[in-house]
């Protein structure tokens, strides 16, 4: 492994760790900001690959990630946090339990999928010969688990954004889809976050309901 590959691996691993941080975090604002950090890390990977492959697309992609994910989504979400935003938190977050479950979940799903399905995809370019695709898949499943495990609306939105981040990272590593599509995807996610933030104001937690059973 070359130094650059090691560096990208470390950043990608940091992305996964930030996902773990979000999973264990109970304060809403910290979660939103951790999502910003995660997006910036992904943008950084995009920039690094862009420099090495001398491709402008990766730069535009990175800038798009930073603007849309880093600023706009966090802006819309933070604005919707009711009351004093720095102290709003989701109760009953059992970190040890979530971490271990998340771990089991990732290990099972990612590695079954990875070994059975994705192992034959060969990454090209600077990361050729490495199995870097495991990080986006892990991130994707962490996002899904975040949605499934937590009850707060904010957390579930962040889980969705995280899942999208996993996809973006997957595309960056494997083969970036055309920019126009990538941009539309980003705008879609942004619009979804804006729309959901309307629902957020009305309903902050989600429990089982008698009317919606069966």
């Amino acid at each position: 492994m070359t130094l650059i590959q090691t560096g990208i691996y470390l950043i990608a691993a940091l992305v996964t760790i930030v996902a773990f941080y979000i999973q264990g975090e109970e304060f809403i604002r910290s979660m939103v900001r951790a999502q910003v950090v995660q997006s910036v890390l992904i943008a950084a990977i995009s920039f690094i690959i862009g420099i090495i492959e001398a491709s402008v697309d990766f730069f535009i992609l990175g800038v798009l990630i930073i603007i849309l994910r880093g600023f706009l989504i966090s802006y819309f979400l933070e604005r919707r946090i009711p009351g004093k935003s720095s102290i709003k938190y989701e109760p009953n977050v059992n970190l040890a339990y979530y971490f271990l479950l998340d771990l089991v979940f990732i290990v099972i799903s990612v590695f079954i999928i990875f070994y059975v399905v994705f192992s034959s995809f060969r990454v090209s370019g600077v990361l050729a010969g490495t199995e870097v695709l495991v990080f986006p898949l892990a991130l994707f499943f962490q996002g899904l688990f975040l949605i499934a495990s937590r009850k707060s609306t904010f957390t579930q939105i962040i889980g969705y954004v995280e899942e999208e981040n996993g996809l973006v990272l997957f595309a960056i590593f494997l083969l970036p889809v055309p920019l126009i599509i990538e941009a539309s995807v980003f705008l879609d996610v942004l619009a979804l976050v804006v729309i959901t933030s309307i629902v957020v104001v009305e309903k902050q937690t989600h429990e089982k309901m008698e009317e919606l059973k069966g």
Partner: peptide, 19 residues
């Protein structure tokens, strides 16, 4: 309250799935 919950489930399940 129910329609909000239903809307929420629609958004989060469908968008997570379609992703």
């Amino acid at each position: 309250s129910t329609s909000l919950e239903a809307a929420w489930r629609y958004i989060i399940i469908v968008s997570a799935g379609v992703t």
